[in-house]
């Protein structure tokens, strides 16, 4: 019993007094110093107060500096969160903007489509007879063939040779009929030949496509003096087209009489097919 008590006292003594190789102060010495400082501070001696004020000032500043990085952490964290939020929000907004743009385009497209249809419906000049409205599916410009593909075919009663108009202006005729689609040969195509009439004298001629925007008038009467700005109509002589469909205005280009079409063949979106009966021998 006494032996264990001795061991305890030896160990405590050793712990308190032993400084070790790298220890400058023993524990007991530091205990005493700490206790003295504590008592001096608690009983508020004047010089201790002054010393404490100085120490406080120094350590508070040090503490402030040393804590600065830690204090920055929440703000950095907030910044990171804000940045991440902004990035995500930006992504969402981009998607939203894209969707809105698409919607805007759709609205614009529908508006234009509506206007176009309105123009067709509200047109003053009406072409008599049955007709069907068709949407242009393809109008890919080819250097060899000036034609468009529409979304109406034999199902809608379309036959080869039927005249196709944009509003009230002739743009071409059907040359190929499928069940649900058809191909329209435009007036400016090299293969297009339309009998026309124009001027006060009802001059007869053939409107021939030259693969340019403006088709030319051929087979004009002899000694005819070409003039500008005369409206060209279909003559209906071929028995295919209804007579009197407006086509364009004459335009003199040197000695060649061209026709500036009323309807731009490159700007077609909706067309009307005149559902007239065509005799096979006429076509």
């Amino acid at each position: 019993m006494s032996s264990s008590r001795d061991d305890f006292s030896i160990a405590i003594r050793s712990a308190l007094l032993k400084k070790g190789a790298r220890q400058k102060f023993s524990l007991v010495f530091l205990f005493i110093v700490a206790l003295i400082i504590f008592l001096l501070d608690v009983y508020q001696f004047k010089f201790v107060k002054l010393t404490r004020t100085l120490i406080n000032d120094g350590i508070y500043r040090l503490s402030n500096i040393s804590t600065a990085p830690i204090k920055l952490l929440p703000s950095i964290n907030n910044k990171i969160k804000e940045t991440i939020f902004a990035i995500n929000e930006n992504k969402e907004l981009k998607v939203e903007l894209e969707t809105l743009k698409n919607k805007e385009f759709q609205v614009e497209f529908l508006k234009n489509q509506n206007d176009s249809l309105r123009r067709i419906l509200d047109s003053d000049i009406k072409i008599k007879g049955k007709s069907t409205l068709a949407k242009v599916l393809l109008d890919k410009d080819s250097p060899y063939l000036k034609s468009i593909v529409i979304n109406r075919g034999s199902k809608s009663g379309i036959n080869k040779g039927m005249p196709v108009v944009d509003g009230n202006y002739l743009i071409g005729k059907i040359v190929e009929v499928n069940y649900l689609s058809s191909r329209v040969l435009l007036l400016n195509d090299l293969n297009s030949r339309i009998p026309i009439t124009f001027g006060e004298e009802s001059t007869q001629a053939i409107l021939t496509g030259k693969s340019e925007n403006k088709p030319v008038l051929e087979y004009l009467p002899e000694l005819y003096t070409p003039r500008n700005d005369l409206t060209v109509f279909t003559s209906g002589k071929d028995g295919v087209f209804i007579p009197g469909i407006p086509i364009g205005k004459t335009e003199l280009d040197g000695e060649i009489l061209k026709v500036k079409l009323f309807s731009d063949p490159n700007q077609l979106s909706f067309v009307t097919v005149q559902l007239i009966k065509i005799r096979e021998d006429n076509f």
């Binding site: 110093v33 700490a34 003295i36 504590f38 501070d41 404490r52 406080n56 350590i59 508070y60």
Partner: peptide, 12 residues
């Protein structure tokens, strides 16, 4: 000093 405790208490 930082905690505002009497000097020496934490040391002890």
């Amino acid at each position: 000093v930082v905690m505002g405790l009497p000097l020496g208490i934490s040391s002890i």
